[in-house]
Simulated assay, not measured.
Amino acid sequence: MNSQFNAIADGLAENGYAVIDNFLSPDEVTAIVTLDAFREGMAHFKKAGIGKDHGLQINEAIRGDYIQWLDKNTSPAPVLAYLDKLNQLVLFLNQSLFLSLKDYEVHLTVYPAGAYYKRHLDQFKKNDHRRLSVICYLNKDWTENEGGQLRMHLDKETLDTLPVAGRLVCFRSDQIEHEVLPATRERLSLTGWMLDQLADVRI
């Protein structure tokens, strides 16, 4: 795990992003995607919106995903194992990059086939506490022709990353604009943010 953490820290320091394979093992991915929350599909997920709190709006022309916020105290054991890794990563990045991160928030994410999220920044205009975006993909046997790439818009190029099971992408929430391209099949992930303040209580 330390080698993965070092690679994430190096990527963030040098480029503002890092892409790490096998952050979750195949068995860990299986344990998460077979949870009731995913098996029962979108019946228990909420339509994701744009903005925060009173400014939250549902706009399917911009994003088409469904989400379910995770509770660090009551989540199932396979999810808690992932959250524990995130907590260790927060501590490591604070020590190595002096980021003063204080907390994190994560939700399960489902993109139905054909859904997308247009180009955007993850940091809110009126709430700038998101420092790092962290996405771990849960899609087994994903192929390039199925689409669903995360496209990061960098200074001089774009970088497309396939949502392969176990792969972790971490990038600066305030600097890197990105989008999610449509896929031909359902696309699953654990999507979260590392914060410089304590996370809000989510319902």
Rank of each mutant, 00 (worst) to 15 (best):
A7H: 10
I8C: 10
I8H: 11
A9N: 10
A13W: 09
A13T: 08
G16F: 05
G16P: 02
V19E: 00
I20S: 00
N22Q: 13
L24M: 14
L24Q: 07
L24A: 07
P26S: 05
T30G: 10
T30N: 13
R39F: 06
M42F: 07
M42G: 04
A43M: 09
A43T: 13
F45W: 08
K47M: 07
A48H: 07
G49M: 07
G49F: 08
D53Y: 12
D53R: 13
D53M: 12
G55H: 15
L56C: 05
I58A: 01
N59G: 02
E60L: 10
Q68I: 09
W69I: 05
W69L: 03
S75D: 09
A77D: 12
Y82W: 05
K85T: 04
Q88W: 06
N94Q: 02
Q95I: 04
S96L: 02
F98Y: 13
F98H: 13
D103Q: 05
E105Q: 06
H107R: 00
P112D: 01
Y117M: 03
H120E: 02
D122P: 04
F124T: 06
F124E: 02
K125M: 08
K126G: 12
K126L: 14
D128H: 15
H129T: 10
H129C: 11
L132T: 02
C136N: 14
K140P: 08
K140C: 07
D141G: 04
N145R: 11
E146G: 05
G148R: 13
L150C: 02
L150E: 00
E157C: 14
T158Q: 15
T158I: 08
L159M: 15
T161W: 00
G166R: 14
C170R: 11
D174V: 11
H178D: 07
E179R: 02
L181I: 01
A183R: 07
A183P: 06
L188F: 14
S189E: 03
L190G: 02
W193E: 05
M194P: 08
L195Y: 04
D196T: 04
Q197T: 15
L198V: 13
R202M: 05
R202Q: 12
R202G: 00
